[in-house]
Design a protein around this nucleic acid. Structure first.
Length: 596
RNA sequence: GGUCCCAUAGCUCAGCUGGAUAGAGCGACUGCCUUCUAAGCAGUAGGUCGGAAGUUCGAAUCUUCCUGGGAUCACCA
């Protein structure tokens, strides 16, 4: 049984025995003891003082005395004002450790029978992935793994935005200046090639607008009348009409982009169970809108457009169907959510989408709720903040975006340079070394983007992200590699520890106890991360584990420890810590190197 | 203008449903490799938790107002 639960039950009994109070476990607060005080658990008795009709100190002292006398848990206790600091018996902690050490499923929950669909990535097909997409992909991948770890049946889906005016712009530019260029002929990744034409379009378009304005046209009119934009719009109309030549070019260019994306996804270790294409789903949702109209949930204006009035929810009136009967963004989302529900019969649907769409998802949730659809309660928007650069916001038009492929390559190169400098892996084969650089470079990048609370904006400092010391993924990986080294040497020396029974009457060093306390928190951390959709909780936890271990490692001998029981304990601690680190880093999509 | 999000050390971030003297990392300074990987450990310096009220025995945390930053309110997606 987890320690917290054991203590809570004991405290409940104590309260009943001493004060005839029958309190639920939520009624009192059990928190970790601050470092400067002795003990691991602290009961805050201010809240109990009134009900017990005694001072907080008196309550604490009496509870402490009772617990020590009537349970086998307590070694000693200290009362400081309204805080009861409990020092538990080492034997109890050793028993706890023994239990989790031998539990192969520690921290993993049994399947809870619930299905959950996580949508993430969702790129446009007119340009390559950038830093912002990386945050999205890492978050989506990590939260999927975390949800799976706590028992959900998780399906990862991608919704590719493969149609619309943006891809038409790249197509127009390609028609004008492409000269039959292909990814092969130019030796350019497909997504970058298409992105190149998008940039070309934008540049030429701006020139046209400027020229029009110089000729006396107003800036709004110029923006609309520029021939290139007219062309792109014309292409969109022909695309929607199914014009063969337009569709062919569209297919060709999108295929280039997908091949490019695939390379990047593979680099990142990102996968999906299903990919949706907006060209297949953009017309969906109309029927739902019509049904809502028939039911009187929505209303039609004179011009034939259909709206919903969300002012009672504190939102605005929202257009659902254009005058010409075509879908808007929200119509499509109403359709795709319904499609997903029939595809997966999921209990929950999570959308990993930037916080610039907070309003959109509020509207979507409200509408689904109004319609009384069965999946109304299960929708969650995992909203995340923009990624800023030291120079400010990323702007694709100003060329200040950080390209994902370039960044990945840079991280790997830096890892390589740093590894060479340290010279610890001279005996590695070229392939092994290359693998290590990838593990380190990507680990640093993923950790850097995942450690921050998703909701907050994130400042991406290229220098800091490439740094390999301190609060970094590398630090955690290093801890793992260190442990592997210790365990290998133990094995080489013929030290067995895995199945050696742990003596329960050895004195526990505070650093070892701290580690055990940390390790036992693993299930709660996973649960918290899942409940709050927060991979950062896991990132933070991994860091705490690594720090705790490094302290112990620097202070206590392991392989040269004379006391056999202590040595076995430290080896087992090292072993479980490495396994736990590996497992939770894996949830974040971060690999663990055996050596570095 | 309405709505939503954010504000903690010079910088980047933790701080759980209110609890003890607000914590890490980077940067700065000082120690520690003849013993398990120094990508490490230990220590010093650095704070009016944006501001003001309120609730409370107790507020970085909850409420209100204000300031600053960001997003959004398209017959764009």
């Amino acid at each position: 049984m987890p320690m917290n639960l054991m203590l809570q039950e004991a405290i409940q009994q104590a309260l009943k025995a001493l004060f005839k109070l029958d309190l639920s476990q939520e009624a009192f607060l059990l928190q970790p003891t601050r470092k400067e005080f002795e003990g691991t658990h602290t009961l805050v008795t201010f809240t109990l003082a009134k009900a017990c009709q005694q001072s907080p100190e008196a309550v604490a002292t009496q509870l402490g005395t009772w617990l020590q006398k009537n349970t086998t848990l307590i070694e000693s206790f200290h009362t400081v004002k309204g805080f009861l600091n409990l020092q538990l018996k080492d034997a109890i902690w050793l028993q706890q450790f023994h239990d989790i050490y031998h539990d192969p499923h520690f921290g993993c929950c049994k399947p809870n029978g619930q299905k959950i669909v996580v949508e993430y990535s969702s790129p446009n097909t007119n340009k390559p992935l950038h830093l912002g997409h990386l945050r999205n992909n890492f978050l989506g991948h990590a939260i999927s793994n975390i949800l799976q770890a706590v028992g959900y049946d998780v399906y990862k889906v991608n919704l590719v935005n493969d149609r619309g005016i943006h891809i038409c712009k790249s197509m127009v530019a390609y028609q004008h200046w492409g000269n039959g260029e292909t990814p092969q002929s130019s030796d350019l990744k497909g997504d970058h090639l298409v992105g190149k034409y998008y940039v070309l379009f934008d540049k030429a378009y701006k020139e046209q607008v400027t020229a029009l304005i110089a000729g006396g046209t107003s800036s709004e009119e110029a923006a609309q009348q520029a021939p290139l934009l007219q062309e792109a719009q014309g292409l969109l109309v022909r695309w929607e009409a199914g014009d063969k030549s337009v569709r062919d070019l569209w297919h060709t260019m999108n295929a280039w982009v997908y091949a490019g994306f695939e390379v990047t996804y593979q680099q990142l270790g990102i996968t999906f169970d299903k990919t949706y294409y907006e060209s297949d789903t953009y017309h969906l949702g109309k029927q739902i809108v019509q049904e809502g109209l028939a039911e009187g949930v929505f209303y039609a204006k004179q011009d034939g457009s259909i709206w919903v009035d969300l002012t009672p929810e504190g939102l605005d009136n929202k257009l659902l169907l254009r005058t010409n009967g075509t879908s808007v963004y929200i119509t499509q989302d109403l359709g795709t959510v319904a499609l997903r529900h029939t595809d997966f019969q999921a209990d929950k649907m999570v959308y990993v989408v930037g916080n610039e769409q907070d309003y959109h998802f509020k509207v979507l949730a409200s509408i689904i709720h109004r319609l009384g659809l069965p999946y109304a309660a299960g929708i969650h928007h995992l909203s995340y903040g923009m990624v800023d650069l030291p120079s400010g916001k990323m702007k694709s038009r100003e060329g200040t975006v950080v390209d994902a492929d370039e960044l990945i390559a840079e991280m790997i190169q830096t890892a390589e340079a740093h590894t060479h400098m340290l010279g610890k892996i001279e005996d590695f084969s070229a392939a092994e070394a290359q693998q290590l650089y990838r593990t380190l470079g990507l680990g640093a990048l993923k950790y850097f983007l995942l450690r921050v609370d998703a909701q907050k904006r994130l400042l991406f400092d290229p220098q800091a992200s490439i740094d390999f010391k301190g609060d970094t993924g590398t630090f955690i990986q290093y801890t793992y590699a260190r442990i592997q080294s210790v365990l290998h040497k133990a094995q080489a020396q013929g030290l067995s520890y895995r199945d050696v029974p742990l003596s329960h009457d050895i004195a526990l060093h505070p650093l070892a106890r701290d580690l055990i306390v940390l390790l036992t928190a693993c299930p709660e951390k996973l649960q918290e991360a899942a409940n709050t959709y927060a991979p950062s909780v896991i990132a933070q936890y991994a860091l705490d584990l690594a720090k705790g271990y490094n302290k112990l490692y620097a202070t206590l001998p392991i392989l040269t420890e004379a006391n056999h029981a202590q040595q076995v304990l430290r080896l087992q601690l090292s072993d479980l810590l490495a396994r736990t680190l590996q497992r939770i880093l894996h949830l974040l999509g971060i690999d663990t190197p055996h050596r570095m």
